[in-house]
Amino acid sequence: MSEHIVPVKVYVSIFLALMVGTAVTVLAAFQDFPGALNVIVAMTIAVVKATLVVLYFMHVRYSARLIWVIVASALFWMGILFALTFSDYWTRGWL
């Protein structure tokens, strides 16, 4: 297996992007958005940051398809956790 060499510049720019993301998270935390938007904004920033970490710091972007399958199955399992937990929270008011 050949290792992909990532230039240091990429790591630095990803790091800076994550720092910006953190700053935006803090700024957004002091704004009161209407309705459920608070959660949506915070989660969006978090997901973007996590994606950057997974793709670049964890080298998934440069990895074999098998690694992508592993990542997909992990996300699928997280989907199970979310879906069945929400099957409780979203239906509590039905009865």
Binding site: I80, S87, D88, T91, R92, W94, L95
Partner: peptide, 22 residues
């Protein structure tokens, strides 16, 4: 085995519908 955990929550205020699924 990953799809059944809610049966520990039947009497813990989990919704009846989730209870039915689990």
């Amino acid at each position: 085995g990953f799809l059944v955990w809610g049966h520990h929550l039947f009497v813990a205020s989990q919704s009846v519908y989730a209870g039915m699924i689990f």
